[in-house]
Design a protein around this nucleic acid. Sequence first.
RNA 1: GCACUUGUAGCUCAGCUGGAUAGAGCGUCUGACUACGGAUCAGAAGGCCAGGGGUUCGAAUCCCUUCAAGUGCACCA
Length: 607
Amino acid sequence: MLDLKAQLKLALENIVPPETEVVIQDTPADKPGDYGSPVAFLLAKALKQNPAQIAKDLAAKVILPSGVARAEAVGPYLNFFVDQSAFVQNIISSVYTPSSKNQKVIIEHTSVNPNKEWHVGHIRGALIGDTLGRIYRAAGYNVEIQNYIDDTGRQAAESQFAIKHYNAVWDGKQKYDHWLGELYVRLHKDFDFKKKTPEAQALEPAIAEVIHALERGELRNEIETVVKSQLETAYSLGIEYDLLTWESDVVHAGLVQQALEIFADRLEQPTEGKYAGTKGVDLSSFVPGLEEPFKVLVRGNGTFVYETKDIAYHYWKFGLFEGLEFSNFAKQPSGKYLYTSAPKGELHPDGQSFAHANQVINVIDSRQWLAQIVVKAGLSLISDGTYAKYHHHLANETVLLEGETMSGRKGITVSADEVIAEAIEQALEFMKAMIPSPANPETLAPIVGIGALKFTVLKTTPERQINFRWDTTLSREGDTAVKIQYAHARARKIAREYTAKGYSGTPDFSSLSELELGVLKTVAKYSEVLTLCTRDKSAHPMCAYALELAGAFNGYYNHKDANGKSDTSVLHAPEGLREARLAVVTRVADAIKEALGVLGIDAPEEM
RNA sequence: GCACUUGUAGCUCAGCUGGAUAGAGCGUCUGACUACGGAUCAGAAGGCCAGGGGUUCGAAUCCCUUCAAGUGCACCA
C-alpha cells in the first residue's frame, strides 16, 4: 500500500494504448480526490476526443487496486479516492522495506588532501557523500564508502617538507591536522610557488625529494597521523567509511600497469607536434570545443599523470582486476571497522570484500569536472564503453565564506572543527536560555547543533554554490532540523503520556477523519522520495520531505474546529478514537525518525 | 574564446524525465484552546519564474538566443 501510486499507474497502463506515459500525482489540496492523472490529455489528440470525455471513459473502465474506493473524472483529470479506513490501517501497519537491488554502489567522498585540517567546504562534500550512502542503503543497494588518500601529491609533500624546513615538532596539544595546516600556510606565506620566485624555486629539489619519499611509502606513518586526525572530524559529524584507498598503494600494487595492458593500444600516440612521444585520449567527443582536446595520460618519459592513476583506480572499482591488498585500519565510533589499502595486507581481511561495483558515484567538487571527464573517457575506452555510463560525478559546488572564495593555501578558511564546536555551543546556549535547567544538555546539544548544521548544508541542491555565514548556517529557526526533531519529540511525548496514564483500548479506525488521512498520505510518500533521491543522486528531497512530515504533524497537532477548539487531541479523545489517533501519531513519529535517520540526523525522544 | 553550473517573492531556497491557481523559511502585518510540549500552528501581504524567441492542447520545467554571476580549460596533483 505504500506504493499505491505505482499500483494506480499500472491499473491505468492496462487500459490505455501501449507506450502511453501515465503520470500519477497528488491532487491539489482544494480539488476532489486523493491522487490524479492527466493522462486523458495525452490520449485526446490520438483519439480526437475531448479529454474530459476520455477521463470519464477511463473512470468507468479502470480496474481499481484494493485500497482505492472509486475513480472520477474531474474535468479532464482522472482522480482517485482512496478507501480511507483501509488506507489508514495499511499505512499504520506497514513499514517500508526495500527490495534488494543486488547492486553494489561505490561512493567515493571526502578525499581531502592529507596535509591540513578540513574546512567548511569539505564538510559539504563529505555530508553529501555520507547521506547519499545512507539513501542508497535505505533503498536496498549494497553500498561501499571509499575515501581516497592522495598521499603522493604535491600538497602532502609540501606539508611534510614544511615540517623539516621549519624544524617543527608537534607538541601533542593542538589537533595534529591543524598544526600541520598552519605549517602549510606558513610555507606559502614565506614562499610564492605560484609566481616561481627564485627563493621558492630553490626549494623545488627538496620538495621533489619528499614526493619521491612519499612514492616509496617511506612517510606512511606521517601521513597516517594526518589521516587519523582528519577522521576525528568526520566522526564528530557521524561520518564513517568502509575503505581508505591510498594513491601510493594504487601505484605500487601495479594497478596502473594492469590498466595500461587493457587500454594502452586504444590510446592515441602522437608522432609529431608538442605531444610527440606521449600517449593519451581525445576528449572532443566528451567536451566539444575544447581548445586542446588531447589529454596526455602517459608522459614522454613514460611516467603517468594523476588522471591515469585515477583511471586505473576506477578500473579496479569496477572489478576489472584485483591487486590491492587491505588491512584493518581502525575501529570507528559505531563499532564498525574501517579498512585501508596496504602495501602488505590481504585480499579479504576479516572476510571483507571490496570493489566490484555496478555503479560508481564520486562526490567531488565541480572544479574537478574535467578530471572526472578524463576518468569517464578512460572508462569509455574499454569493453563496449558501458562502464562510462555507470560512473557518475556528483559535482557539488563550492562553499563561500561570508561571500568570499576560500583558500586553504592562503589560510582563508574556517575549519570544520571550529564550526562543529560552535554549532554545539550555540545549541547549548539556546537550550539553557529556553529551559532554565534542561534535562541532559550535554547529550542533546550535539544532536541539535550538528543536526542543524547538517540539515542546512544538505537541504540545498548540490549544484548550487552556498555561502557559509556564522549567523545563518547554524540557525535553528524556520526550516531547520530542530523543527523536525521537535515534532518527533512531541509525538513521542504523547505516547509516553498514554502509557503513564494507564490507558488501553482497541483502536477504532473508522472514527478517524480527513485530518489523519492527510497526515498519513504524507507518510506514504516515503518510498517515492527515496526513489527521487537515488534518481537525482541528492539528499535535498529527503530534507524537504522531513520538513513536510513535521509540518503535517504540527498542523494536525494544532488543528482547531470552527469554534477554535482543539479537535485532534489524542489523550482527551474517547476510547477507540484515542487509540486510533495514538497509532497515527506513533506512525508519524516513526516516519520522521526514519527520514532523519536517512539524513544522518538523530531524533531524540525528548528535548 | 570555449565548456560546465547557477539566475524563481525584499532576503535564503524548493519546484525542472511538461500537466490543475508557482511553494516554503526569514523579514513585515493579524491571530490561536484557560498548552496531550508555544523550539508550534492558522491567516494576510509580497512573483512579467533574468530578457527575448520557439515547440506544445498545456512551459518555471524542453529547444535556440542574449545578459549576469561562479568555475574549469598543464607531459601539476
